[in-house]
Write a protein that binds this DNA or RNA. Structure first.
Length: 1085
RNA sequence: GGGCCUGUAGCUCAGCUGGUUAGAGCGCUACUCUGAUAAAGUAGAGGUCGGAUGUUCGAGUCAUCCCAGGCCCA
């Protein structure tokens, strides 16, 4: 025997409830039982988690992505798929190093070296472990059911060695090579930065001293002539090799300050304005850029030993990238100190000079600059140029310049050796895989393909400490070996293996660096290169390393490729998605995952980007405490993932008010009345709707047919139809990753349930006798709520379980303990009744129009009116109108409902062509018909159309259904229209109606008085009403109605208050619209 | 310069395969209902659907071009 429901307070602290449930889950081992639910199932759904960087606490943007992951995992679990539930942590790479450096107060790589690389790496690991635990806890607060004791770590040996295997595979194909490139470099951190690191937050507006200087030409016939050159990086001048002009431009030859100089003609005026030229500058002639190409010049620091190799290479190059928006139209080119310069130099066979070491200090061969920092030499440069009479002018120049994203040091460009994977042969495989994958949103595929089209070789090395130890052993002889596994290393080790093993054999710096091998070519002892790996290697290998690619190939085959992955898309096309695709292409010529579910970026409530430094970022813990996790999760779930999400406490409040609280109110309403009536699930006449097994086999609701004679009403039929349609649509939408549609469907359903089903059914629950009608209402509402709790389980796991536990688990013996142990509901198609849904939709629409019409005429709903006239659009709606007549009468408090088409005499007509029918038939003649209709007699057309006769309009013979007839307002009616529908109320109020209105008004006052006097809903009362004579009659007529509505045993109505009422405390007066006054007194009977 | 996305009410966004009078939430104003009340409902104002051209009987929706913004690449 089921017991009463726990009472549900409409005033609820959701956050406290969530914490209670969380504890209950923990105490009862729900997450683990949930994960094991499908252990014996055949069908699998493989999710590979994109690792979260275990480097800081979670922000709400992390919660966004993790909500998606949890949501789809839960959905598939309820559907009975076996899953792995493995979370992943990213815990290697520069990100971690940066935070540890901050923690330790380190300023540069030298500090790390001084501290000891081994100790530093240990600190990094500790930080990762610390935050992995923190994030695990926070994720559990989010309701994320993962196998938290079994998370994978990219810092694990397995992960690192699997990358070795990948690199070895590449090396065997000859794809690994050492290359030189000029890259952005932070002199403080002593490392290169990838393009990605600069893009994110790596630019600042910086003002530099920017010199204009002369490059003297030395060819015969050009003696005394100079190129005018401009640069924003004076320190690169010592590494100058060439100058570049645009061959298409016209260059001016100008005499100024006693020198002859060349520059782009179009810049003449702006150079004067900037005081680079004097007002006296004299144009001597002009030449095409192409004519300058090949001229030789003397570079400003030709005397330096470093220039020895390139002194005879100084000449003018042709480069169509040269612009004339700023500068001089002649570009100083230092291939060893600029990225574009390097490329241009390569194309022209120049020798790059690399002036700086890893700390940004000039190397040997740069004279007085040697030993100085690039940042400090600009004045020395200017002095030297002045002495040589090469300096024309120094101006301040403000521009966006790249800085290090962690220490804000201005970046330099350095020529360095790095290791690359040649992508030429991998690219087609990647393109094929990308095409085979399903991308959500769909444009993801186009973006990834675009990236692949343009991608260059993958630079995999990084000159840092804590990361993948690249297993590359480069010998001085020019040969290099790549090691593919721990076993291979052991076999080939010639020294250091024992020490390495003793230290734990973890393939990390510094321990790994002690192991040396013999060069496979010359036999010399070789050390590992010092570089560590690009962090995306760590994340990309995950679909192999975490599911036993090397250790358990059979298991791996079961779970690869993943059925789905999910991550935020803006960065991941070139990061995680990219590295996943590379590795799957190289190792298996396969796609890594079948479905990619990606989402955009989070903004604050005002649409601004969230930044910790800006102060508008929200920590997950704060949000969980203030708004609650269900609210957060619902906000995420209802959003279109392809567009950015504006998120904040206000949006949270909105979601709570619009969705969570209304649903809670329904739940509260249900339990309140069910308890009053001693209604329990035992009384439910709809079979178990909670899915006792994950595959739903015992879910009787899915094949139930609504019995006759059990009291089910049209309203029940309707909401159960909506419920089953919702179930079907939710299933379809979730299977096709259409989250906003799924969530939107629930919102619409809850609104229908609240504002139509429950409101229209209230009297069924209130009434005192417990008949079949009442039981059908309880059964229906109970089924709606219990089904909703399961549909919502993946979305709002807390709320869903709160409802489920109270309504089901704690009432029914063999029901699963938690909603998360139930199955996904199956729709009962036989209960989906399009007709009843359309009818109700029409009733809702017309009721709304009726209320609108009432509002216009300022007639309260309490005041009964004579007629409501409805104008509908479709044939079937005329029939439907008869069926919803009673509903409309009640909703609108009217005596009759009339189809407007039946009262042609009362309403005016407007005739319109039915374009949907006429369009295809008459084509271009439509306009003619339109005009003819305008000119014709509307009443006659309407009559003919109603009668189904052929209508003659001008030269056309139209069928009855080829015109549309609308009615317009007439006297004594207030009309409201919407989308072709209209509703009108007759605004004339008879005495009889007025009396009824008064009675209802009085009832309202009595009900308020009951409430304010603290009476229970079921208490009976005695009632005395005093009022003027002309109201007395009205009230007497409706005395029975008043008594019934207010549970009054005795009703005394009169002009004078009877003696019995003297001293009765509860009393209230009411002023009627017509000036009459009514006073009500009551006491408990 | 190339690729992708976006442009609909003051703000944030829906509008599926082209079809009669383009919707919601928020905000604002007014009102109503209140034994679900930390609610709910109704109305009002507010839109030449970024612009142009084309296809079509008919375009917010399809095509082409242009403009603006965002992201990616060069």
């Amino acid at each position: 025997m089921a017991s009463h429901f726990d009472s549900v307070d409409p005033k609820v602290d959701f956050v406290a409830k969530e914490e209670e449930i969380l504890k209950w889950w923990d105490d009862n081992d729900i997450p683990a039982r949930y994960r094991k639910l499908n252990d014996d199932k055949e069908k699998k759904y493989s999710f590979i988690d994109g690792p979260i960087t275990a480097n800081n606490a979670m922000g709400v943007h992390h919660a966004w992505g993790r909500t998606y992951k949890d949501l789809f995992l839960r959905f598939r679990n309820m559907q009975g798929y076996k899953q792995r539930f493995q979370n992943g942590f990213d815990g290697q790479g520069l990100w971690i190093e940066v935070e540890v450096e901050k923690e330790m107060g380190f300023k540069s790589k030298r500090d790390i070296e001084a501290f000891g690389v081994g100790k530093f790496v240990e600190e990094c690991r500790k930080r990762v472990d610390r935050f992995a635990e923190r994030i695990s806890n926070q994720s559990q607060r989010l309701g994320y059911f993962m196998d938290w004791d079994n998370s994978y770590h990219t810092k694990s040996d397995e992960n690192n060695y699997t990358i070795w295997h990948f690199l070895k595979t590449c090396a065997d194909k000859g794809w690994i090579y050492k290359g030189r490139d000029v890259m952005p470099w932070c002199p403080r951190c002593g490392t290169g930065l990838s393009q990605h690191e600069i893009v994110t937050e790596g630019y600042q507006d910086i003002t530099h001293d920017s010199p204009y200087l002369k490059f003297p030409l030395i060819d015969d016939g050009h003696e005394g002539e100079n190129l005018l050159v401009w640069t924003t990086t004076p320190w690169t001048l010592a590494a100058n090799v060439a100058a570049a002009v645009n061959p298409e431009y016209t260059y001016a030859k100008v005499e100024d300050r006693g020198s002859v100089i060349y520059f782009s003609k179009s810049l003449l005026e702006s150079l004067k304005k900037d005081h680079v030229l004097t007002g006296e500058a004299k144009v001597l002639g002009e030449v095409k850029g192409s004519e300058l190409v090949g001229l030789r010049y003397k570079a400003p620091f030709d005397e330096l030993p470093a220039q020895d190799e390139v002194r005879d290479q100084h000449r003018v190059l042709s480069w169509d990238e040269v612009g004339e928006d700023e500068g001089t139209g002649i570009v100083h080119t230092a291939p060893g100190a600029g990225a574009e310069d390097f490329k241009l130099g390569n194309e022209n066979g120049l020798t790059p000079i690399a002036p700086l070491d890893q700390n940004g200090i000039y190397k040997e061969g740069f004279g007085e600059f040697t030993g100085k920092s690039a940042a400090d030499v600009k004045d020395m440069v200017f002095e030297s140029l002045k002495e040589k009479d090469l300096l024309v002018r120094v101006n301040k120049y403000t521009h966006r310049y790249p800085v290090c994203w962690r220490c804000s040091t201005e970046l330099v460009f350095r020529l360095v050796d790095e290791w690359f994977i040649n992508m030429d042969e991998i690219r087609p495989k990647m393109q094929k895989a990308t095409n085979e994958m399903n991308w959500y949103p769909e444009f993801g595929k186009a973006r990834e393909l675009d990236w692949l089209k343009n991608m260059q070789d993958w630079m995999i090395s990084k000159k840092r400490y804590y990361g993948l130890a690249l297993p590359i052993y480069a010998c001085d002889c020019g040969n290099f070996d790549v090691i593919g596994s721990s076993e291979e290393l052991k076999e080939r080790a010639v020294e250091g293996w024992e020490e390495f093993e003793a230290a734990g054999a973890s393939p990390h710096r510094p321990w790994i660096d002690g192991v040396k091998i013999a060069c496979s070519d010359c036999g010399e002892t070789v050390s590992r290169i010092e570089d560590v790996g690009n962090a995306w290697l760590d994340a990309g290998i995950v679909p192999f390393s975490t599911i036993g690619y090397k250790s358990d190939p059979e298991y791996w085959k079961e779970w690869f490729p993943a059925d789905w992955i999910s991550e935020s898309f803006p960065g991941q096309f070139r990061n995680w998605f990219y590295s996943l695709i590379v590795m799957a292409a190289v190792l298996e010529d396969s796609m890594p995952a079948k479905n990619v579910f990606a989402y955009a970026l989070m903004r604050d409530e005002n649409g601004e980007e969230m930044h910790k430094s800006k102060g508008n970022a929200i920590w997950f813990e704060d949000a969980a405490e203030k708004m609650g996790v269900d609210v957060m999760r619902w906000t995420y779930s209802r959003h279109n993932p392809a567009s950015n999400l504006n998120f904040g406490y206000k949006t949270g409040d909105e979601v709570r008010r619009q969705f969570i609280i209304p649903l809670w109110n329904i739940y509260s309403f249900f339990t309140t009345y069910a308890n009053l009536d001693d209604w329990t699930p035992d009384d439910c006449v709809i079979p178990s709707s909670f899915g006792f097994t994950p595959d739903g086999e015992q879910n009787g609701f899915e094949s139930w047919t609504m019995p006759e004679g059990e009291g089910f009403s049209e309203l029940d039929r309707w909401i159960l139809s909506e419920l089953n349609q919702l179930t079907q649509k939710m299933t379809d939408n979730l299977e096709s990753w259409q989250l906003p549609y799924a969530a939107g469907g629930v919102e619409q359903f809850v609104e229908d349930l609240s504002n139509w089903y429950v409101r229209r059914s209230r009297r069924r629950f209130w009434k005192t006798e417990g008949d079949k009608d009442k039981n059908a209402a309880y059964s229906t509402l109970y089924t709606c709520l219990t089904t909703l709790s399961r549909l919502l389980a993946p979305f709002t796991p807390f709320f869903a379980d709160i409802m489920y536990r109270n309504l089901v688990a704690e009432r029914i013996d063999d029901a699963p303990d938690s909603v998360h142990l139930t199955s996904w509901p199956k729709a009962n198609a036989s209960l989906v009744d399009e007709d009843v849904m359309n009818q109700t939709r029409l009733a809702i629409r017309l009721a709304s129009l009726g209320r609108s019409a009432r509002a216009q005429s300022r007639l309260k709903v309490r005041q009964p009116l004579g007629e409501f006239v409805a104008e509908v659009r479709h044939d079937w709606e005329h029939f439907a109108l008869a069926k919803i007549e009673n509903v409309l009468k009640e909703e609108l408090n009217v005596k009759s409902v009339i189809d407007a088409s039946e009262m042609g005499g009362l309403l005016g007509f407007e005739i319109k062509p039915n374009l949907r029918v006429l369009g295809p038939k008459y084509g271009k003649q439509i306009d003619e018909i339109r005009n003819a209709i305008q000119a014709a007699d509307a009443n006659e057309i309407a009559r003919a159309s109603e009668a189904g006769e052929t209508i003659s309009i001008g030269s056309f013979e139209l069928e009855a259904d080829e015109v549309l007839i609308e009615r317009v307002a007439l006297e004594n009616y207030a009309v409201a229209t919407d989308a072709g529908y209209a509703g009108a109320v007759l605004t004339v109020v008879s005495d009889e109606l007025k009396a009824e209105g008064t009675a209802r008004e009085v009832v309202r006052v009595i009900q308020n008085l009951r409430k304010s006097s603290g009476l229970k809903i079921s208490d009976r009362i005695n009632l005395w009403i005093s009022c003027s004579d002309d109201v007395t009659g009205a009230l007497m007529t409706h005395a029975d109605y008043i008594a019934e509505e207010t549970l009054a045993d005795n009703v005394d109505i009169g002009a004078v208050l009877s003696d019995d009422a003297q001293g009765v405390a509860a009393s209230e007066s009411l002023d009627l619209d017509d000036g009459n006054k009514v006073t009500v007194n009551l006491e408990k009977a």
